[in-house]
Design a protein around this nucleic acid. Structure first.
Lengths: 188, 188
DNA sequence: GAACAGCCTTGATCAGCATCAAGAATGACC
DNA sequence: GGTCATTCTTGATGCTGATCAAGGCTGTTC
């Protein structure tokens, strides 16, 4: 599309801040981005890990009210809101992405509202495994323990303890630098 | 619109179940509806309280994956998905409603992920007060303590205790059968 | 390969909320 | 107005996960 622009960013680079102009839609074509909110007191809630083919936000004007940051090296395609929504293919894509995000957010809500630490992390791994797998079928976790904690509403220590336990019990196996495989039921 | 149908339901009536056909969009024109998920073990997570002018769900085909139930007497307008999305006014309305829901769900995620019981309930009251106020400006709470608990991820006892405390401290005042007024800062 | 920074792990203790339990208030129905 | 079911409140106790603290691992830089 003529109105699209491309950007490449190195890992850990901020993509936008709350308060930035929401004039363009941003699609991730490579890598993983974390989308999050920050409170006055420094607490952070990661709302989504956005992967290839997905849009970062759905604000079509005004100011952005949250943050996005590259977790890995990323490639992005940006499109001005008006041009994108006037283009049939883009508009349909945006629509579909909104539906997907609604579903993921709902799932995230149930994860946070009703589940124990073990259940949250098991569900987190399942959610990630549906979107971030190696060709061999292993789960990729490009995020740090802190980021997992900020997604699941737990602390870094609890995340670490749970992973350690599952690895000790051979329910979760490390298969590479940042890849894992689930070998048994995690829920317990 | 010719393709719209109207329904009136008494309070506590189920509107749809998970597994039902997602063939029509449903708009609330009067009353309040709770939208929720249920787990195998009976735990329930209320995802949203849907009020006048809002859509219940955004599934445009297949089977619904959650539940909806009238909290109060309600009036609904239903429209077949295809007819609605072909109609410009409806399509724009659906789009706008999806954006609103995305924002509310994100807010709900931060409420559940990062906050203490007091903070959750304070935030819950603020969210509700933005959409359910009497002409006098009081907050309407048509939902039970259990429903508030299932929305905030707390137990009914914790909700009750927090409300009692705020009422004892005159931060929250009962102004009617199901109406309240916030008199001071709740967060503490 | 030594030094350093960032990330992760593990243990000990603590606090907030859940759970368990009992009774009070509210409202519906005859 | 009395009875019953439902909802709400309040207290006592316990558990899960947070907090505090210390040390280990990994990777980078010179």
């Amino acid at each position: 599309m003529s109105f699209e622009t491309h950007r490449c960013l190195a890992k850990h680079t901020p993509i936008y801040f709350a308060g930035d102009d929401a004039g363009e839609l941003i699609k991730v074509t490579k890598g993983v981005v974390s989308v999050f909110c920050i409170f006055e007191d420094g607490r952070r809630q990661i709302v989504d890990f956005v992967t290839e083919g997905e849009l970062l936000h759905f604000q079509f004007g005004g100011e952005l009210d949250h943050y996005a940051e590259a977790l890995t090296d990323v490639e992005l395609v940006c499109a001005p809101v008006n041009a994108a929504l006037s283009d049939t293919a883009w508009a349909e894509y945006v629509f579909e992405q909104m539906r997907n995000r609604l579903d993921r957010e709902r799932r995230h809500i149930t994860l946070l509202g009703q589940k124990s630490a073990a259940e949250r992390l098991a569900e987190f791994l399942i959610i990630v495994s549906e979107r971030l797998t190696t060709p061999l079928g292993d789960i990729e976790l490009p995020m740090t323990r802190q980021e997992i904690a900020d997604y699941t509403g737990l602390t870094i220590e609890t995340v670490s303890r749970m992973f350690s336990r599952w690895m000790r019990e051979r329910r979760l196996v490390v298969t590479g630098k940042r890849t894992y495989r689930i070998e048994g039921a995690l829920a317990a």
